[in-house]
Design a protein around this nucleic acid. Structure first.
Lengths: 112, 112
DNA sequence: TAGCAACTTAGAGCATACTCTAAGTCAAAG
DNA sequence: CTTTGACTTAGAGTATGCTCTAAGTTGCTA
């Protein structure tokens, strides 16, 4: 897959994919004979999961930690990163539930 | 209340409160004889609610919209801002629930 | 073979939201 | 009186995460 196809498939812009590679969040894929990025199915799968983590609010620093552990076969470290993120998501959910309550209450108070 | 007390009460730093005033998110409070900010109970109450909105992820632009409507007595506009924010919170909650599921599934898959 | 789209790089610019610095004023405590 | 600490301002700097630009190469299509 070329970068544009990956971009369309994952919803991350080509600019952003290159940016992630420059930041070390993603590894550079193999290049074809004319120097263009050529992504394997495995690469695309990883980028897709990165998109998911990004959308769920994981920081690039943490995504990089996950990806690096993953690429180096440090499976336990990758899992730890995911578990920490999961805890953050659950915390966020709790906070949002609270803020929904508070905002609903405020709206009710102002509606009189 | 002086700015430091407001800062302690609301959890927003004095720097940030001044920044909000410069950005027009908050109105400048009355100043005492030596030119220091002197916040009324009403001011503090508003800043506290601003802190709540900020913590729940409302952008400064939207908080400014709410505060301005509120200060100008445009109650319906203030309410609309809150209702829009409430919808965003509910959307966020849905997304987070989804990402919790996805992350848990990923963890399970990697745990084998 | 000319044109066009898609690719490449380094690096600049932007949006959001702070966060800090410099230089100075002012009031109360020792 | 002088030191301490909180306050004032304008404005610079930081962090995150893009987003775009410039200048150039490559490869398909008419």
């Amino acid at each position: 897959m070329k970068i544009k196809e990956v971009s369309e498939f994952t919803g991350i812009s080509a600019h952003t994919i290159r940016y992630y590679e420059k930041q070390g969040v993603l590894e550079l894929p193999k290049k074809d004979s004319s120097g263009h990025r050529n992504y394997s199915d495995t690469d695309v799968e990883l980028i897709n999961w990165v998109a998911c983590m990004k959308n769920s609010g994981m920081s690039l620093r943490d995504i990089k930690g996950y990806v690096t552990a993953s690429m180096e076969g440090r499976n336990e470290d990758a899992l730890v990163a995911l578990r920490i993120h999961l805890e953050k998501l659950k915390e966020q959910k709790k906070n949002i539930d609270h803020y929904i309550d508070v905002t609903e209450a405020k709206i009710k108070r102002l509606s009189n």
